[in-house]
Structure formats: C-alpha cells, structure tokens
Amino acid sequence: MATLPPLPGTSGRRDWRTAFDAVRRLMADADDTTQVFRIMRALNVGNAPQNYARLIATEEGGRIAYERVELAQRFSDPAFVASFAPGTVGAAYRQFLESTGYSADGLVEVSKLEGDPEWVDHPYTWMGRRIRDTHDIWHVLTGYQADEPMGEAALVAFSFAQVGGLGWALIGTAAALKSLNVARNTLFAKAVWEGYRHGRAAQWLQGEDYLTLMHEPIDAARARLGIREPVLYRRAQRELGPAMADFLKARKEGAALAA
C-alpha cells in the first residue's frame, strides 16, 4: 500500500493530554459527543492519509475519491432519504433517523472544533469526513444501537478494527474498563471485544460506494460484507439492560441536581 505525506500544516504528534481529558469527560457524560471528536483529533494522527491510500488502491476507490461526494449533504437531503425501497440499507437508515432523532447535519455540527483542519479543502480531510459521515450507517449495518453506551462502545471497537486510529481504541478500552465497575461482570466488555473481532472479519466498509449500498437489501449487504450477527452484544443487552438503564438514570439525575 502506498505511503502518502501528512496533511500540510499538521505536526504529526499525538496530544495525549487532551485525549485523556476528553475521555474522562466522555466517561462522565456519554452524551457529550464533542469529546469523541476531541479524542479523534488528538490521537488519530495520520489516520486519514492511511485510509485514503487504502481507498485509492481499491478497484472502485479511485473513482470514489475522484468524485469526492460529501455524504453528509446527501444524507441530509429529505428527498434522498425518502427514496429508498423497503428492506434496503437506506430504508433501515431512514428508520434509524426517525427512531433516534439524529441527523447527518447534526453530527456535522457536533464534530466542529475550533481550529480543526477538517474543513480544509484537501483529499485527507474529505476522507476524515467520509469516515465520520458513515458512522450512523455502520450502526444500521452492524446492529449496534446508537442511543446507548454499549452500542456505541461496540461500534467504536468495530471502527478501530476497520479504519485504525488510537482514538477509537482509547474510547472502546475506557468504556469496557468502566463497565467492569458499573455492571460488575464482563458482558459489556465482551460485547466490545466482539465488535472489534467483527470489524476485523468484515470487508473494508470504507471501500464501498455508499450511494449504491444504500439501495441494496440490508440482509444481502450484511452477507456480502461479512458483517456477523452481534450475539454477545444481544445477550449483554438482555442481561444488562435494566442495570444500565438504572445507572444512566441516576447519572442524569445527579447531573441535573449539580446544574
């Protein structure tokens, strides 16, 4: 695989102090999504060039990179989202948006950090946005729920296996370790590890043409991409659900009182 030069104007150094501060804040408040992007910026040094090189080395990747579609813009278009036939990846994504209240442009807004080079007009920053903008599609494909800490942690581990980046690894590890204290068993951590293993086993999802993938029947897409059923995650959901719900409720009530 080709080795590409770094993004001009970047130091190439990881900022561990910022990363540990951000992960501490994220573990205290799982809804503070901004901290995820602080961690990514601090630790995922060189990640976009590596993934861009991998993309353009694939059969379709050169065309995808040349066209440089901004997926957030397409996923934020109501007509585009409404166009998918029942049973497709796109229809499942539409249901995801309706059930969670999330949106592609909302994720874009949360990801904006002061001084972030993500908005520079460069192929690497486009690749970084592409990884960000496919995050919720990966929730749909993998079955990891987006509005719960365990689902996010499992997908973070899946993402680390897929695209690398120490930021993903730090978040997944921190969440798994915290779960040992909260849940008093290893089921949460096992679900996170399963996410990593499934990410390693699956096809490289960043090489997909998402405008085509969204129209593919979801079961067929999962089979073609080698995305496995999250058995341990489902078990952990069943067995840890009440305990995790009580923990999250108590934490939110505590935060409200503190405010």
Rank of each mutant, 00 (worst) to 15 (best):
R235C: 02
G12M: 05
Y66A: 08
L232N: 10
E60N: 14
L177S: 09
F20N: 06
M27H: 10
L180M: 13
P8R: 06
L213W: 02
Q145G: 06
E67G: 00
V120F: 01
Y66R: 11
R238E: 10
D116T: 07
A256R: 15
R234Y: 05
D136Q: 01
E67Q: 07
F80S: 01
A92F: 00
A53G: 15
G195N: 13
A191V: 12
I171K: 08
G115D: 01
M214E: 05
A191T: 09
R228A: 15
L155S: 09
K249G: 00
F160E: 05
R251N: 01
L97F: 09
D105K: 13
Q73I: 04
L55P: 15
L43G: 10
E216K: 05
A250N: 04
T173V: 07
R68L: 00
N51W: 14
V120E: 14
L141Y: 11
G151P: 05
A243I: 02
A91E: 13
D15K: 00
A53L: 00
A245Q: 09
G199D: 13
A259L: 14
A220P: 00
G128L: 11
S159V: 07
A202Y: 01
D209E: 12
D136L: 04
R17I: 07
R235E: 11
A236I: 00
D32S: 05
G101K: 04
A92N: 13
R13W: 01
V45H: 11
D121A: 15
R228L: 10
F96V: 04
T18W: 00
T18Y: 00
L166W: 12
G165P: 07
V163G: 07
F188K: 11
S11T: 15
V231N: 12
R24D: 14
D246A: 15
W138Y: 14
K249T: 11
A176S: 14
M40R: 04
T34L: 03
F20L: 15
R200S: 10
P117F: 02
L248P: 00
P49E: 01
A30W: 15
L107H: 06
G167H: 13
R25E: 15
G172K: 13
A174Q: 09
T18K: 08
A85D: 14
L248T: 03
T186C: 08
L107Y: 10
N47Q: 14
N44H: 09
N47V: 08
R238T: 13
A22F: 03
V36H: 06
Q206R: 03
P230H: 13
R238Q: 14
N47G: 09
S11Y: 03
A30I: 08
F37A: 03
R130M: 12
R238G: 06
K112W: 05
T88Q: 12
R24W: 10
T173L: 15
R54E: 09
